[in-house]
Design a binder for these strands. Structure first.
Lengths: 264, 264
DNA sequence: CGTTAGGTTGAGCAATATCAAATTCGGTGG
DNA sequence: CCACCGAATTTGATATTGCTCAACCTAACG
C-alpha cells in the first residue's frame, strides 16, 4: 500500500515552497531559496532527542523535513505540557529577537530530519529582496499564534472528547497545507502519552477517548496512522475553525482614512 | 484612603514610557512619542464593552491608560475562555500584518480608558527613526508569547490552586514593570466569574480556592484589591518564573561564526 | 430601603486521575 | 521462523478534583 502522505508528482524538495507559497505568493527566486535550504544535507535525530533547551540560546534555525517534534514545558512531579507540535515544514529556533532564549524545550517525538537554514532569519526581515517570503513567514507566525490561542481554549474550556476532536482537525489542517494529509488521513508519529501531554489529560483517559471515537466510527488509528472518518462530526464536537489571517482587500479603501474612528 | 496603585512622584502620562523603557533603552525622542500618545484625549469604556470582535478587521490601535480588558474566545453552551488580560500600558489591536483579522474578542473587564496610537504600527517597523521603541515593542510581543505559553501550561497541567498562584504572580510581575504594583499589592478589577474564565475553572471553585489561599494567609482580597502576602509560598506552589528574553551579550561574539554548528 | 450583581455555602454528581495488572505490538537475537 | 523483550496500549477498580445546582448572604447604588 502506498503511504499517501505526499502527493506523488511533486519533487521531494518542495515541501517548504509548497507550504509558504500557500501563505503568500512567492517569486521563482524565493521558491529557489527554499529549495536550496531543503536540498541541504539533513541532520537526523532519534525520538526524545532534545533539539533546543528551555532558556538556552538559539542556534542556527532548522526546518523539519520529516518527522514530528514538540515544544514543551516541564513542571514538578514529572508533569509536562506540550505547547505545540512541530510538523514537517515547521522551523525550529527561528526568531528575529537578538540573542533570544527559548521559552520551551524542543524534543523529537519521532525520528526526524532537519535542514539548516541560517539565511532565513535575515530573509524574514528583508522586505526588498524577498518580500513574498518575508510576508509568508509573517503569516506563518500569525498562524502559530492562532494555534496557541486554540490550544488555550481547548485546555481551558473543552472536554477531553472535544479537545481531541478539535486538535485532530487542527493537525489535519496544518498537514493539508503541506500536502501531508489526504482526505483526512495522515501519519501521526506520537504515542498516547505524548498525546496526553499535548491535551492536558492522563494517558488512560486519552486511550478511552480514542476508543470512544473509534466506536462511534469517527476515527481510525492504527500503527501510527490516523484517519478522520467523519470530519463533519468531529468539527461539530470540537468547534474547530481554521485561521482567517486577513480580510479580503475588497473595495479599494478610501484614500482619506475614515474620520474620527471610534472604538465603540 | 490612597489607592497606592501608582508611584506618587511620576507624571501621570509616563505609563507607556516607563513600561517600554524597561524593555529597551529609549531615546528622549522615543519617550516623547509615547508621552504624546498618552497625553491624547482618552476614550472611556464601561465594563463589558466590546472593543474589538473576533474575526473583525483591526481599527486604529489603542493603548490602555487605565482599567483592565480581556481577550477571549467563546464556545457553545455559553462557555468562554479568557486568552489574556490586558493591563494599563498594553495595546489593543496592534499588529503589523496587513488587513489582519482579530483572533479574539476584546472586552472591557472594568471601566477603562484608552488613547489612540495610529502612529505606533509604523513605529514598530521603523528601525531607523525609533530603533529603541521598535525593539521595545518586539520585546513586549515576545513577553506576550511567553505569557501565552505560561497560560497553556497552567491550564493543561496545573491544579486550580497552582494555576491561581501562578497567575497572580504573573499579573503582579506585569504590573510591577508599569509601577502599578507595590510590594505585591494591586487593584484587580475583575469578578470571580472573569477569574474563572481566565483560569478554566467554575466560579464556585474559584471562590473556594481563593478562600483556601486566604485561610493559609497567602493572599488578601477585598474590594477589588489583591495583596500577595506570601509570594514565596505562592511561587513555590505555582512554579512561576518571569520571562528571560535575551542572553547577556557577555563576551563579544567571535567575528567568524562558530564552524559547523550542530543541533545535537 | 428595595434591587441587583457579586460573592459564599452546602450537597450531590460527573469527569478525569491514579493505581495496578493484563495484553498487544514491533523489533531482535537465536 | 520462533522466542523473547521492552514499550505501548488496553482494561478494571477506585479515588479525587472540580462541576452543577440551588440557596442564601452582602454590599453598593439609585
Amino acid at each position: 500500500m502506498m503511504d499517501g502522505t505526499r502527493s506523488a508528482n511533486l519533487p521531494l524538495t518542495d515541501l517548504l515552497a509548497i507550504r509558504f507559497a500557500k501563505l503568500h505568493p512567492l517569486s521563482e527566486h524565493e521558491r529557489n531559496v527554499l529549495r536550496l535550504i531543503e536540498g541541504r544535507p539533513k541532520h537526523s535525530h532519534r525520538p526524545d532527542t532534545v533539539l533546543l533547551s528551555e532558556k538556552a540560546e538559539f542556534r542556527v534555525p532548522h526546518f523539519i523535513t520529516s518527522g514530528w517534534a514538540s515544544c514543551l514545558r516541564e513542571l514538578g512531579g514529572g508533569r509536562r505540557q506540550i505547547i505545540k507540535v512541530l510538523l514537517p515544514g515547521d522551523a525550529i529556533g527561528l526568531t528575529t529577537r537578538p540573542r533570544p532564549l527559548s521559552f520551551t524545550t524542543v524534543v523529537a517525538l519521532s525520528s526526524m530530519r532537519t535542514a539548516e537554514a541560517p539565511e532565513i532569519t535575515v530573509a524574514w526581515q528583508d522586505r526588498v529582496r524577498v518580500p513574498g517570503l518575508a510576508a509568508a513567514l509573517d503569516l506563518a507566525a500569525a498562524e502559530d499564534e492562532f494555534f496557541l490561542i486554540n490550544h488555550i481554549t481547548r485546555l481551558g474550556r473543552q472536554t477531553a472528547y472535544e479537545r481531541m476532536a478539535n486538535w485532530f482537525l487542527e493537525v489535519d489542517y496544518r498537514l493539508s497545507s503541506r500536502g501531508l494529509s489526504s482526505g483526512g488521513a495522515f501519519q501521526m508519529p506520537m504515542t498516547q502519552e505524548a498525546l496526553a501531554d499535548a491535551l492536558g489529560l492522563s494517558v488512560v483517559h486519552v486511550n478511552r477517548t480514542l476508543q470512544q471515537m473509534r466506536r462511534e466510527g469517527r476515527i481510525e488509528l492504527t500503527r501510527g496512522r490516523l484517519s478522520l472518518l467523519d470530519r463533519e462530526a468531529l468539527r461539530e464536537a470540537g468547534e474547530f475553525s481554521p485561521p482567517q489571517l486577513a480580510a479580503k482587500p475588497a473595495d479599494p479603501p478610501p484614500a482619506v482614512p475614515a474620520p474620527q474612528p471610534s472604538v465603540h
